[in-house]
Nucleic acid binder design. Structure first.
Lengths: 337, 337
DNA sequence: CTGAAAGCGCTAACAT
DNA sequence: ATGTTAGCGCTTTCAG
């Protein structure tokens, strides 16, 4: 593994020039630059990121902290971030903070702070004030995805509006008895996302004068199984069966469709179902939903960090609110249709 | 951010001693060791991994290369590896090699080789001979998960045996007309996994004298949708409908269950279905399957690397073949039952 | 058991 | 435009 020295020798210049030619910092004549590059290629030279980091204080690496990896939303955000990071010449190191407090503290103290990363992306994770400030004190920008973090630039969809949109879709079809499957306390996650969605749902109903019926709410854990169980409950009672269900996640909505089927109900004939996410399975199940775009969210988070890390580069307009979009498939229709 | 110097001063020793006390290399009297540790804690000192790596040549970081992240198998392996790595004091940096050849080469040349990692875990990815040897040349151990890599220690279940086991389960229930949904060329992935499973399926049939009927094979892409479509095909023809289906992945098996349902067939009454994986949704669908344990595979991969990275440490018996296990749920039963 | 000092491989002033 | 020269913060001989 050749060092910067052999390159310098082969190109007949100093190591400083090699460094400049290869990094693009400082001026180097076109001629020498190409000579250096040729030499580097010939030798198969590649900089030692450690030496470089030590000298510059920058690591070209960002840390991503995340509570789970094997869920559609999280892994999609990470994928988006990874792609974008790669294209900026950055690496991504992953910290799975699912563990309890101990593991979590250890990650913060021994890993993130080891000067391994230039910045961190926190996905659906509520960092404590002290965690945030210790990072900020070290001059490491943070951006959150999926929920507000005190004192941190955060990307997240407007959950209340998303829920409103879904509910309004149902209302516009003529539904008046609309149930909601939301989150239980366990899933309140760190950001009260379930509450926001419930609030949006209720707001949409109230806006058209429909009273909130607590009997039309059920809590679940955002999974397909959970949604199935909750829907059985909601749809099983023929006396007060709603004509439509708004589930706070697509997985729960799919569970609802399956539950309806098992109850002998037809979707959307007997009951309309809408979710939130545009999960990879939603298209298959014909589920109407309000899509969000996690990979794009990951990408956007990276853009924001790059702007902070390289204040010189022209910041692309970066305050567009996060996109969401109603996707109507075959699980929603006029009641009694 | 205090450096090793301030710790040395506060503890009244030299930086060399601090280094030894904190890293555990070399002898330090118990007394000074604890004094140093106290000082380090008091100052909130944490080593600079870059400086340390530069000096030692070790990074305490392993690279994981992977073709996708948002699939159950991959993200589970990564989760398992991450946990294990963390407990060994290692970080994990993630490289998503889904892209085409260009992006892939760039990862290899500019990232992995940048001396960022001490080792690499390749998940279901066929590295080229030159990729492998360039890593090995730099003395970076590699371990593969999910398929054999030339010249590399690899972890993977015995796909042929897995398929045989699944098929034998069906046979033992009395099925004689057993269809198989395997992979198409796109999914041949890098490792001919679909072929191995098909071979195992055929071997099981032949062992009991059942001729292979090409009409009972269908190819799909390992997804739920793909399985659904293939199953519609296989089960839709009443003249030669099999009494059981062995799908090469749980997602396809679930698609098969849904297809059967839509065809008005009862599972397992009219058709038994078995898959491979024990996917997170399988339990919900009552799917019988041959489970594999991806998180454990990730963990095991890390153990193997640690053995190579720290040859001194007592290697835990490490040649247990990868575990798989038949899980019988409600999707399989005697034919006509 | 502990200290002094020489790097690890690069970058960034500072010169020229 | 290019070369010289100090470090970046730690580890590790080599002495003692």
């Amino acid at each position: 593994m050749p060092g910067i020295n052999e390159v310098a020798v082969l190109a007949g210049v100093s190591t400083a020039t090699v460094s400049r030619a290869l990094s693009g910092n400082g001026h180097v004549s076109a001629a020498t630059k190409s000579r250096v590059k040729a030499a580097a290629v010939e030798l198969g030279y590649v900089v030692s990121s450690n030496a470089s980091s030590l000298a510059t204080g920058r690591t070209k690496n960002v840390g991503v902290v995340i509570p789970f990896l094997n869920r559609w939303f999280f892994s999609s955000v990470v994928e988006g971030a990874e792609h974008s990071l790669l294209s900026h010449g950055y690496d991504l190191t992953l910290y799975n903070l699912s563990g309890n407090g101990d593991e979590r503290r250890s990650v913060f103290e021994h890993f993130l702070l080891r000067k391994r990363v230039d910045a961190v992306i926190a996905i659906s994770l509520e960092l404590t004030a002290s965690e945030v400030s210790s990072l900020l004190d070290m001059n490491k920008p943070i951006v959150g995805v999926g929920g507000p973090l005190p004192g941190v630039r955060t990307l997240s969809i407007d959950d209340e509006q998303v829920a409103r949109l879904a509910t309004e879709h149902l209302l516009s079809l003529g539904h008046r008895s609309i149930a909601h499957i939301g989150g239980n306390n366990d899933v309140e996650l760190d950001f009260h996302l379930p509450t926001h969605r419930r609030v949006g749902y209720e707001a949409a109903l109230e806006a058209v004068g429909i009273p909130i019926d607590p009997g039309l709410f059920a809590a679940a854990d955002f999974t397909l199984q959970g949604g199935y169980r909750a829907a059985k409950q909601l749809l099983g009672n023929p006396r007060k069966r709603p004509t439509a269900v708004f589930a706070a996640s697509d997985e729960m909505a799919i569970g609802t469709i399956l539950a309806a089927r098992d109850l002998g109900l037809h979707v959307p004939g007997d009951v309309s179902v809408i979710g939130v996410d545009d999960h990879e399975l939603s298209d298959f199940f014909g589920l109407s939903t309000v899509a969000q775009f996690p990979a794009e969210q990951g990408r956007r988070a990276v853009e924001i960090l790059m702007d902070q890390l390289h204040p010189d580069r022209r910041a692309p307009a970066s305050n567009i609110p996060l996109r969401f979009e109603l996707i109507v498939r075959s699980s929603t229709a006029r009641p009694g249709g």
